[in-house]
């Protein structure tokens, strides 16, 4: 087995995104539109993940953790630039995370905004905890 150099996390997601996009194109040309949609969607999500990783955050579902809020309440969430993302669903969390991290003046944000309007796939997820309106939380020691 040939050992490989470690790959940067953001590049890993970006390459995965390109790989899924290539698969989507091939499936589309072969007449498998449903498979093309599946891989195109995953290509889209992996590109979102690349930016999340590039900004130094773990890509959901990684990073799900327990937080103690300033009020003393303990919740589970993804720590994010705007406090926290309390939904464990990785699909929606990546979209929300990207929206918080993206540069809205860049042209890619327009493409993201267009595509995020497509009703998203809902993966099976544990029951949601209703988010509270507390200020950004601090990780528990």
């Amino acid at each position: 087995m040939i050992s490989s150099l470690p790959i940067r996390e953001d590049r890993k997601w970006y390459y995965l995104g390109l790989r899924h996009l290539r698969m989507a194109f091939r499936l589309m040309r072969s007449g498998y539109a449903d498979g093309a949609v599946f891989h195109a969607y995953h290509g889209y999500e992996w590109v979102l993940s690349a930016l999340i990783a590039a900004k130094g955050y773990p890509v959901p579902p990684e990073g799900w953790t327990t937080l103690r809020l300033p009020t003393g309440r303990v919740v589970q969430a993804y720590p994010s630039p705007q406090g926290m993302i309390p939904d464990h669903n990785a699909h929606k969390a990546r979209i929300v995370f990207f929206d918080q991290l993206a540069d809205r003046t860049e042209s890619y944000y327009r493409d993201f905004n267009r595509l995020s309007r497509r009703d998203s796939v809902k993966a099976s997820a544990p029951p949601k905890i209703a988010p509270c309106s507390a200020t950004p939380a601090r990780p528990t020691p």
Binding site: P86, N89, K92, A130, P131
Partner: peptide, 9 residues
Amino acid sequence: DLRNLPFDD
């Protein structure tokens, strides 16, 4: 539950 926005579709 509206507190689940924007996570609920």
